[in-house]
C-alpha cells in the first residue's frame, strides 16, 4: 500500500500542484456553468418585471390594434410581430436550403483542398458586422429590389435577403461540422450495399447528422429573428400589416428595429418604455420557443437511436 502510494506520488510529481488545484478548477467550471443559467434567469426576470406595468396599464385588447403609433398611445403589436415573422420567413426560406446544400457540397462532394479554402472564407463572412451588411443592403440591394417592380426598395424581402446572407455562414459551418462528424464507416457500409452517392448522402449521412443540422437551422433562425441594425436600414420601418400577393414587397417594421429606434428617446417609466420591454420579452419568448422546438427535435432523434 505504502509502496504503491509512493510510486503513484512519484509518477504524478510533476502535476502535484495540478492535483491540489483540481477541486478549485472543478468549482470554477461549475460556477461558470451555473452563472450562464443565472444570467439568463436574471435577464428574463428583468424583462418580465419591466414589461409587467405595460400589461397592467393598457388593456390586452389594445395590443391587437393594427396601428403602432406610440406618441399617440397606440400600441398595436400586430404589425410588428407580422413584420418580424415575414422578414424571418424570407430569410429562412432562402438561407436554409442554400445553407444545407452548401454544407453537403463542402462535406461530401467538394475535393478536400477546395473545402479547406472555402470553409475559412465562409467563417469570415460570419464576422462581417451587421451594420456593414445593412449599408450594402441600403446602397446596393434596395435599388435592385426596386427595379424588380416594388414601389420602394425598402421591403420585407430586402430585409430577408440581408438576413439570409447573415444566417448562411452559421448554418453552413455548423451543418458541415455535423456532416463531417458522421463516421466514415456509415458511408462505406451504404456504398458497399450498392447505394449511389446521392442515396448515401440523403438516406444515411443526413439522418445521422440530423441533430447537428437542426441546431444549425435553429441558430440561423435565431440570428435572423434577433438581428436589428441591418434590418432597420433596409425594411423601411413602416408599422403596417402588409396584405395581398405583393406582401413581401411592402415595407415592414420589425420588433427589434422598433426597440432600437425608440428606446433612446422614450421617457423612463412611461407606458411606451414598458411596452418596449414587453416587445423584448416577446422576442425572448420567441427565441426560447425556437430553441425548445430544436431541443425536442434533437432529443426525439436521440431516443430513437437508443431504441433502435
Amino acid at each position: 500500500m505504502d509502496a504503491s502510494r509512493a510510486a503513484l506520488s512519484r509518477t504524478t510529481r510533476p502535476t502535484r500542484s495540478g492535483n491540489r488545484m483540481e477541486p478549485w478548477i472543478e468549482r470554477a467550471v461549475r460556477l461558470a456553468g451555473l452563472s450562464a443559467i443565472f444570467i439568463v434567469a436574471l435577464i428574463f426576470i428583468f424583462l418580465i418585471r419591466l414589461s409587467l406595468p405595460a400589461l397592467t396599464r393598457i388593456p390586452l385588447s389594445a395590443f391587437g390594434d393594427l396601428r403602432w403609433y406610440p406618441i399617440e398611445e397606440r400600441f398595436g403589436l400586430v404589425s410588428l410581430v407580422v413584420g418580424s415573422l415575414l422578414v424571418t420567413a424570407v430569410a429562412v426560406g432562402i438561407a436554409v436550403p442554400l445553407g444545407l446544400v452548401t454544407a453537403i457540397y463542402l462535406g461530401e462532394i467538394a475535393p478536400p483542398w477546395l473545402g479547406d479554402i472555402l470553409k475559412p472564407l465562409i467563417e469570415i463572412l460570419a464576422g462581417i458586422p451587421s451594420i456593414v451588411l445593412g449599408f450594402v443592403g441600403w446602397v446596393a440591394l434596395a435599388p435592385l429590389v426596386q427595379r424588380l417592380g416594388a414601389p420602394t426598395g425598402l421591403t420585407a424581402f430586402t430585409g430577408g435577403l440581408i438576413l439570409a446572407y447573415m444566417a448562411l455562414p452559421t448554418i453552413i459551418s455548423i451543418a458541415e461540422d455535423a456532416i463531417d462528424a458522421v463516421p466514415k464507416s456509415y458511408r462505406d457500409g451504404s456504398l458497399a450495399l450498392g447505394a449511389t452517392r446521392w442515396q448515401t448522402i440523403y438516406r444515411v449521412v443526413l439522418p445521422a447528422a440530423r441533430s447537428g443540422i437542426v441546431t444549425a437551422v435553429m441558430l440561423g433562425i435565431g440570428r435572423a429573428v434577433g438581428e436589428t441594425m441591418a434590418v432597420m436600414m433596409v425594411t423601411g420601418n413602416a408599422a403596417h400589416v402588409p396584405r395581398g400577393t405583393s406582401m413581401l414587397f411592402q415595407p415592414v417594421r420589425t420588433m427589434t428595429a422598433t426597440i432600437a429606434a425608440e428606446m433612446g428617446e422614450v421617457a423612463r417609466g412611461g407606458t411606451h418604455y414598458h411596452v418596449l420591454f414587453l416587445i423584448g420579452a416577446l422576442l425572448f419568448l420567441i427565441t426560447f420557443a425556437i430553441n425548445s422546438v430544436a431541443a425536442r427535435l434533437v432529443g426525439r432523434r436521440r431516443t430513437g437511436e437508443g431504441g433502435g
Binding site: E72, A238, H240, R253
Partner: peptide, 13 residues
Amino acid sequence: STDIFASQTLLMP
C-alpha cells in the same frame, strides 16, 4: 385633431 400618419409611411432613422 387625432389624425395620424398613414400606417404605410416609411419611418427613416
